[in-house]
Structure formats: C-alpha cells, structure tokens
Nucleic acid binder design. Structure first.
Lengths: 330, 330
DNA sequence: CTGTTAGCGCATTCAC
DNA sequence: GTGAATGCGCTAACAG
C-alpha cells in the first residue's frame, strides 16, 4: 500500500540503515545514494513522521494559543508566527481558546502527549498553574508569576507616548478609555503609562475603565462623555474599540474627531491598509513580536537559554484622528 | 523521566495491555480499572500520541491551507474550522500559502507523511496535479478537474442577486469591478451571475476586470469611472476591494456613495461588526461553509461517501451603500 | 562505509 | 478478563 523504508531498502538492494542515512543526509557512498534515491523516486516514498517522531522525540511542531483568530491583531500575529516557523521547517497548530481555560489546558497538554515541541501563547485567563518554567512556553503580552519567557510590546511606554502625543498636539484635558480583564496582563500597563505622563506633566485626565466583557459599553461611554464634556483627547485601549468610539462620537454628534477632539488607538492593525481614513495609533511591532516569539520557543526547545523578558518598542503613527503637531519641543 | 505505559502497568501491578484497555475504554474489571486509574493519576501519565498514531495510523489532525490568515474572510473561516474540528477532538494545522504552490505542496505532502489525516484547502493556484480523488481533500471555493469534494457559496446566484438588488434599488447603469486570477476559481462566477441578470433583464452594464495582482488597480479604476461617468451601481468582487473603491470614489469626489451611486460588495466579513457605517454586501455563509468542510473531510477520512459538490446559499445584507428599496415587485 | 539489530510507546492479537 | 508477545516505521548504536 504505502511504501516504507523497508520497501525502499529492498528495491535498492541495501539495508534500511543506509536508506535512513541518505534521508538524513549522513555520509553515504555516492553510488549507493543514487540507487537509494532512485528507489525512493520509484516508490514515491515519504518518511512516516510519526515513526520518526517516536524515535527522535521531536515533532517539528509548535502550537499557537490565542483568544480568537478573528481579531485582526491576532490574525496578523499568527500570520507571522506561521511564516517564521515555516522557515525553520516547523508546523503550526492553531488554537482559538475563546478565553476558555479548558481549551488552553487541552493544548498545553499536547506537549506532554509529545504532539508538539512547544507553545506560544496569548492567554488572558488563569493558566498559571499549568505553566511552569520547565514547560517549553513563550508567553506573549502576559507576564506569568513563574519565570516563564515572555515577549511583549512596551505597553508602558506606549501609554506614555499616547498621552504625550495628545498633549503635544494640543489636547488640554485627556482621558483613557478601555476595559480591564479579570486576569492581569500587559495591556493594563497602557493605562499606567498614560497616567504616568499626565501626572508628570500635570495634565488633567479622566479614566473610563469598564470590566470585560463589554456589555453596555456604549452606555458607560455616553455617560462618561456627558459627565466630562470638556475632554479633547482620548486614548483608547485598542484600535478596535477606538473605531467603535469614533463611530459613537459621530453618531451622537458628541465630538468631531480630528476637529475638536483627538483619538489615539493602540495596536496598529492594518485594517485600513490602503484606506485613507486612518486612525492615529500606537503601533505594536507585530512582526518583530512574532519573530522573537518563534526564535525563543525554538531556542527553548533546543535547550538553550533565552532572555526571560523581551520588550519591543512601540511608535506613534499619525492618522487623521489627531491634530497636526504644532511645534517640536523635544 | 516521562512516564510510559509500562511504568503505569508496573505500578498498578498489571500488564500493559490492561492499561491500554482502560485508556481506550475497553471492558475491564472495575477493580483493576481503579488501580490503573490511580497509577495514571500518580504518575501524571499521558499517552504518547505519536506512538499511538504509529499503531493506529491516525493523527486526529487536519491541515487548513489558505492564501493568508490576514484576510478577514479567511480568518473567520479558519476560526470556525478550528471550532468544529475541536468539537470532534481534532487538531488543526494552519498553512498560509501566500499563493505559493511550493508551500501548498509541502502541506499536501503531510498526509503522505502520516502527519495529518486530511486537508481542507482554499487554493487559487495550480495544485491540480497533486490533488487526486484518493487524497483526503476538501476544496473550498474552487472546483478541481478531478472529482475532489468541494464546498462553496453559490457565487453564481450571488452575482445575480447583486445585480438584482442594484436594479431594484434604482440603478439604471451598473458595473462589475474586480479582478481575475490566473487560475480558475469559483469567484469568477460572481461576474457570470451578474452578467446573467443584466442580460436577462436588459440592463446596461460595464465590466472592469483587472488581472491579479492588483498593481495599479486604482489607475484602472479611475480610467474606467471616467470612461463611464453615468454608472450608478457598482458590484465589487469582494468587501475588501469594495471598501477601497468607496474610499477612492470619495477621495476623488467621483461619486457620492449611497446618494448618487450604489455599491455592493461580497463576503459579509464582520469587519464593521458594531460599526454603523456598513457596506451593503452579498453575505457568504462562512460558518456553514466551515461546518460542511469539516463534516466532509471527517467523513472522507472515515472512508464514507460524501457529496462531491456542496453549494451554500448567499443572501443580501443591506448597509448604507445602497438606496432603500422602492417597491417589492417579486 | 554499510548491514544488522534493538528498541521508541503503544494497540492488538493470542493463549491462559 | 488479563498478561505476554508481536510489530507499526524509523533511528542509532554496533559490528563488520
């Protein structure tokens, strides 16, 4: 039915060891290699990865756990992870956890099952207990209690930067709009940074922080905006929510974004790629985040040491939802 | 180091066969099952999937090949595929082909390598030669020459529907705007359906069909719109391109969409979920497409017969880029 | 350099 | 019911 190594060996008139050698590129006499290659060709032979994996205890496979591939930020991240992995001849398992611990746990199990060599995870729920330092795991955007490796954009600086840009572009009274999850994660640092800057520069600010999930978010938002009508600069926790806020402002005619109010998002998703109406935002280096995540997980799998913490720089990208910069007083 | 079946057997004081039986739910005396379960618990044992796969010749794994997970339509599709697969206890490999045959081929190889049980593929390039009826493959949005199973939205009806809606909502002179790929696929039927309707109802129409990739698309578009200034209804090949067209029209002030010109897209991606400014579009039943794709590939893997062709209905979703319907003369 | 052999961890015969 | 034995397809260690 399906050709095995033994078939190839028989046809080529050699031992199975030799076949294994030519496949794995070990030194073999050119003449015999030819014979083997010919036999492989003729039988259309492909090594059985499961048999190989059983011996070598390696799967050339990594799992990626994320909340949902629907979100453009995660999709873009997944794209790059797959690309970098593929370059290294690794395959990628995709897991949408939907924030459900059971599913995250299920995938984490896979390394014990010898089904994957390691895991890259964006998990916002409580999986601490399953993660330990000896599990090949790279966490993204989330700092675990134990010393597991993690890579993240510099959310603190991002928050500071957002405040700074709003202020330097003319806002006098700013606000952070976002949500907080039940479980701690790096994204809360966006708010921390925002506050840092306002405090240090004595800028008046307000905060709207709604608990997830976003039930009645717009109701909270409306009340907030009515309560503080003088706000002229908004930093929204991510681009997705920011777009929603902008629509809401326009619909309710509460503000004219880009005219009497600025809005800055966070993520830098390429939703509007090619579109002119761009959101001003703090851009996360998604590609680099994926690159480091992959590099680190592969290093861990190889048994090498990796830096526990990798912070990647963010930058401001100007769209049409902020004013032009007045002066450059750096 | 890592516990094996033998360790469990020894600790429980039974044979490995018995351990295997309790794991696979075969009849075992309750008393011995207890002992085994206890041993499994104590050793924190998990079966090695590769060893099992080597015996059973099954991997409980399916690969999904698509052009890029970046595109919201594919991301949404992937989300559902993973969900349905997960329900059946299957895992998902993700492959971004970027339209590169080499990568598609590489993943198709995986079934020969015993690394996946089957493949679901959205491939727009020329992989016909690698696909044959005896490969467990379900094609989405693409009809292969051989009798491989495929599922697709009814693009022909979708094209007709788009034309119908434009006309019934007041357009007198309509156009199809899109592109065509080097390789045939179901999406070209959108144009076919569009023409069908126009011909049958004697509606004047034009066609702009730019070859992929989209180099200089906007140049072609501008020339086209200037050449036919009387156009008042546009059917664009998909939502992504449609949004670009709308931006272009507004930027160049060629038309006022929703006022003196209608635009209908195709796909029904939930980009604008929660946003008010929605694109009118022909919605593909993404979830159902994923559901059938998964059901079929699992059936094929199980050796069952499946329908070769599955057409799923589309529907029109009203946004703000079309006029209100004047009358209902069905 | 190359053929032979011993497992990798598990499911599945067989006898008992 | 259950234990022992066999082999899935492959790699690696061992002789030759």
């Amino acid at each position: 039915m399906k050709a095995t190594m033994k078939d190839v060996a028989r046809l080529a008139g050699v031992g199975v060891g030799t076949v294994s050698r030519v496949i794995n590129g070990v030194t073999v006499k050119p003449k015999t290699k030819e014979k083997v290659d010919a036999a492989i060709q003729e039988l259309n032979y492909t090594p059985n990865e499961y048999a190989r994996g059983l011996k070598t205890k390696t799967t050339q496979t990594v799992a990626l756990i994320l909340p949902t591939i629907w979100h453009p930020f995660f999709a873009e991240f997944a794209y790059y992870v797959e690309e970098f992995l593929s370059n290294k001849n690794y395959k990628l398992f995709l897991c949408n956890s939907d924030g459900k611990v059971s599913k995250e746990k299920e995938y984490i199990q896979m390394v014990k099952q010898n089904k994957v060599d390691g895991i890259i995870g964006i998990t916002y729920s409580d999986v601490d207990q399953y993660i330990s330092a000896n599990l090949p795991f790279v966490s993204v955007d989330r700092h675990f209690s134990e010393d597991v490796c993690y890579v993240t954009a510099d959310n603190l600086v991002g928050g500071q930067l957002a405040a700074k840009e709003l202020v330097e572009r003319g806002s006098k009274y700013v606000a952070f709009i976002g949500s907080y999850s039940e479980y701690p994660n790096e994204t809360t640092k966006r708010l921390d940074g925002f506050i840092d800057y306002c405090l240090a520069h004595e800028i008046a600010y307000e905060i709207l922080s709604v608990p997830e999930p976003y039930e009645e978010f717009n109701e909270h938002l409306e009340k907030f905006l009515i309560q503080y009508p003088e706000l002229d600069g908004l930093f929204v926790v991510n681009d997705f929510v920011a777009l929603g806020v902008i629509d809401f402002l326009e619909e309710k005619k509460l503000k004219k974004v880009g005219v009497n109010c600025q809005v800055i998002g966070f993520d830098g998703i390429r939703l509007g790629k090619g579109h002119k109406k761009m959101l001003s935002t703090i851009v996360q280096p998604i590609k680099e985040m994926a690159e480091f995540s992959v590099a680190h997980i592969l290093s861990i799998i190889a048994g090498e040491e990796v830096p526990k913490r990798t912070f990647l720089p963010v930058c401001f990208e100007e769209g049409v939802t902020t004013f032009k910069k007045l002066q450059n007083n750096d």
